[in-house]
Simulated scan of single mutants.
Amino acid sequence: METGLQPVDMLVPGGNLDAYIQGVSRIAVLTVEQERELAGRLYFDNDLEAARQLVMSHLRFVIHIAKSYSGYGLPMSDLIQEGNVGLMKAVKRFNPDVGVRLISFAVHWVKAEIHEFILRNWRIVKVATTKAQRKLFFNLRSSKKRLAWLNNSEVDAVAKDLGVEAHVVREMESRMAGQDTAFDGYVGDDDDNAYQAPSHYLEDRRADPATQLEEEDWSLSSMSQLRNALALLDQRSRDILERRWLTDDKATLLELADEYGISAERIRQLEKNAMKKVKASMLA
């Protein structure tokens, strides 16, 4: 059935989400026989037109799945688009001989892509990184029946159901309760609210001219002291110390031992004594 939209328009919801959903709803659902025939053409003959028809006829299911994630505060069009990516991955891997409908096979791929998108974009600071944390994140969201914090019995029930410790549930709940804050505040904030922006109370001391001048003076003074301390060493000790610590291409004990015709242990002793003399001179 024609919808008036091109295939690429179906995969990427535009600004008018309602028009997109209406367009998808006009695409006919495949029968079992039609689906099996198209899947066979794709799987065995790499028929791209068959792949297109399989994807298009299942876009309505992606919308249905994406709507179940509307509570995360992310644009529905983005959730649908990510779900469509999962659908295309599923179609590419679908084997018609397995004996299941495509949607049953594809639901895992659709949800996986949506989950990844939510975890990447729900917070600036990631709330879940490991597989176990991701499972807890989505299960905890669905387990909470109200906006208030879970009580002890509810925490214990969730922990038992998911096979984790109670403190792990508490930690994830705390992460999920955190909110992102704009560093410079929000456009339109009045004077009573503007002071709450982090830019008003977080100070970057690195930009303080006095601190920068102090650090530069300390650096110059330290370098001067180091040069004076090195000048007090004999030529061999100074050479060993410089080549072991003050160059990018540092020499090894064995290399210096071969050059000076002494043992590596003797080089180590000379290095240690030179370090003591330099330290004592700089602290004097």
Rank of each mutant, 00 (worst) to 15 (best):
E37G: 04
L230D: 07
L147W: 09
G86P: 02
G15W: 01
D180P: 14
S70R: 14
A197I: 06
P198K: 09
L38E: 04
R60N: 12
W122R: 13
W218L: 12
S68T: 15
S281T: 00
R205Q: 11
I21T: 03
A210S: 12
G4R: 07
P198Q: 10
L202I: 15
N152F: 01
V164M: 06
D161M: 06
D190T: 13
E116G: 09
A157P: 01
L59Q: 09
D47I: 05
K272N: 13
Y201D: 05
N228M: 09
N152V: 04
V100D: 05
Y69C: 00
T130D: 05
E255M: 05
G14A: 08
H64P: 03
V12K: 14
M88C: 15
A159G: 06
D217M: 12
Q34C: 05
A177N: 15
E255K: 03
A159I: 00
Q269T: 10
L119M: 14
S224V: 02
M176F: 07
G99D: 09
G99H: 08
S219I: 09
E113T: 07
Q133L: 04
T31W: 07
A51F: 13
L87H: 07
L74E: 04
M76V: 07
L136T: 00
L74P: 02
A112I: 01
E82Y: 10
A182E: 14
D190V: 09
N193P: 00
E35H: 00
Q196W: 14
K131Q: 15
W245F: 15
Y43P: 03
D217N: 10
E154V: 01
A28V: 11
A229Q: 03
E271V: 00
D97T: 10
L54K: 09
A148S: 12
A197M: 11
R93I: 01
K67V: 05
D191N: 15
S221W: 03
L136N: 00
A284T: 02
M56K: 09
R268T: 06
T247P: 02
Q6L: 05
A66E: 04
L17S: 02
P13T: 07
